[in-house]
Structure formats: C-alpha cells, structure tokens
Design a protein around this nucleic acid. Structure first.
Lengths: 162, 162
DNA sequence: CTCATTGCAAACGATTTGCATACCG
DNA sequence: CGGTATGCAAATCGTTTGCAATGAG
C-alpha cells in the first residue's frame, strides 16, 4: 500500500536556473555555496538547517550556520527550495523536484514526520476532480495525530511540561 | 457549486471535555483561564497568540503573555485547539470545531475554493494510520488546480491578472 | 494550609544581522 | 582593487520557564 517514491532529479537544469538567478542578482560564485546547493539538490527528502549543517560540516569543516541559512534563503528565493513548518519552530526545506505528490503523517506531540504515498487516494481525488470539472495540478495531504511512540509514552511525560 | 459548510459550534461540549481533562490533571479552575478558553472557543478562525493576547487584554487588563501561552498549550493537549505554522515563526491556533472536514479544491487561477468531503479518503487514511500505529487527530487535504470556469476562460483572461 | 495559577523577567532556541576578514573576478 | 561571501558573535523574535506572589478549595 505504501510506496517508496522515485524522483527524477534534474540537478543540471536546477543549477542552470540558479546560475541565471545569480547573474541577475550580481552574486559572485563561491565554492562553499556551490557545494551546499549541489548537496541540497541531490536530497530527496526535506531537511532542517541543523541536519544540513551537520552533514555539510563533514565535507567543509569550517562552514558556519549563517552560510547554510543564507544559501537556503537564496534557494527559496529562486524557487529551487520550499520551506515548510511541519512542527513548531523548525523550518524544513525540500528541493523543488520532490514537491509533488507526497503526503505526511505529522505527530503533534514529538513532531515526527512520516512520508507516504497512496495511489487509491489519488484515484479518488481524480474522480472528485472530474466530478467538479477540476484540473488537478498538485495536492497536499497532511494528517496530524499521535505517533506510536508518543501513544506509548502516555500522559505522565507530557504532563510534566505544563 | 461552492458548498458552504456549517459548523455546529458546541462550546458546551468542548467545555465539558476540558473539565474532564482538567480533573484528570488535577488542575484547579481559574477565572482567567476559563475566560480565555471560552473566548477562544467562540472563534471561527485561527488566531495567533499575539492577536489573542491583545483581544483578551481589553477584557482582562492585567493578563500576561504566559497565561495565554499556557492556556493554549492546554487546549492543544486536550485536543480542543490545533496549532499550525502557516508562516514562518508564528504559530496560529484554531478551535477544533472548525478543524474538521477540511478538504479543499483551490483554483490556482481565480482562487476559488471548493470544499468537499469524501468518506473513502478518510477510510483509507484510517487504514494507513492503523498500519503506522498512528492516532489521527485531524487532517488537511488541499488539491490545487484549475476550476471549470477558468478552464473555459482560456489563458488570456487570467494572464491579465498577474 | 496546600497546591495550582499567574505575571514578570530571564532563559531559550531558531534565525538574522553587523562587522571584520577571506575570497572572486 | 572593489565588491561579494563567510564566520563569528551579538541581536532578534517567538516561546518557555523559574520564581515569588496570588488565588482556589
């Protein structure tokens, strides 16, 4: 029922787009930024700045948080990344190529996000769309609730936080 | 074609639910908190802490931010409010009663929103949730596309509005 | 009296920014 | 060289928390 999704990543085109964007804004090229962008665009899942920072740090030891933030801001500006807030206070970025057709379970207690894809739901959507003479471009399905771990935790642990 | 949905605001039941929740957690009652809850539950739109604070302040001048925060946290915990981040850095809360049956077709050209509800999609969601041991609290399904009218209009008319 | 609630100020965590330095063309 | 990119530390902003005072049962 649940399918792992495959994405055709067209990094080349994405990089070309960024180049054009960079020229428009008179940006100079930079090894570090280029590396971050290249790295980010190969991802097929959303990522937080912290995660990205830790991963990049292993490749560019001296890298700073601000550089990651500034680079991601540029990517969002030029449309190559999308920023989303699944849970409180943490922004997650996804490369534009995975924007389509993925759905999320989001735990409202611990913030865990489970991605899934379901064909039947999509089929129904298409039927409904047909009924309403609606041409589907894209959709977003988010299911909020409590994940297995948090259900087990029970009341005591979150009681403490009042 | 657009269906106005009616929400039965059942504040009485909501308050009862909170009472039960409060008893379980050994909360004492408090005028201020009760007022905030009552006020919040009559809203039919999401609200930010800042907005709520400013509105409550006109009724209870001495109120503090923390009280609002703490009360909303309780409401989220007991399921009477949902927290969402529509935009970066700001959490908005909505009363549960406007949170149900939240499916939308959204026309990306004219902005028309068609609300709909489909039982089968919900059934599938429940199956998926079961598989992941996930307890569903609510969900949001948004389908973006082009509505009947705009399909007929062709490109010229909506192009002008960009 | 015994706890829970509240307001305030301080703490916090994610993000942004000012500035001096490093880098690119 | 002139201007952009970077790292660092400090500033910011929404939110949380410690604590002393207040309120409820």
């Amino acid at each position: 029922m649940i399918m792992k999704m495959k994405f055709k990543i067209n990094k080349k085109d994405d990089l070309k787009l960024f180049d054009k964007f960079a020229r428009k804004l008179n940006l100079k090229s930079s090894r570090k930024r280029d590396f971050i962008i290249d790295y980010f665009l190969t991802l097929n899942k959303h990522i937080s700045i912290e995660e990205l920072y830790n991963q990049i740090k292993t490749k560019i030891p001296g890298i700073g948080y601000s550089t990651i933030y500034r680079t991601l801001r540029l990517l969002v500006l030029c449309g190559l990344a999308t920023a989303r807030q699944f849970e409180k206070g943490i922004t997650r970025y996804e490369p534009v190529h995975i924007k389509k057709h993925h759905d999320h379970f989001i735990c409202t207690r611990c913030g865990q996000i489970i991605e899934f894809h379901n064909r039947t739901i999509e089929k129904i959507q298409n039927n409904l769309a047909h009924k309403y003479h609606f041409l589907i471009q894209n959709h977003k399905l988010e299911i909020y609730g409590i994940c297995q771990k948090c259900k087990k935790k029970g009341r005591r642990q979150w009681r403490a936080s009042i």
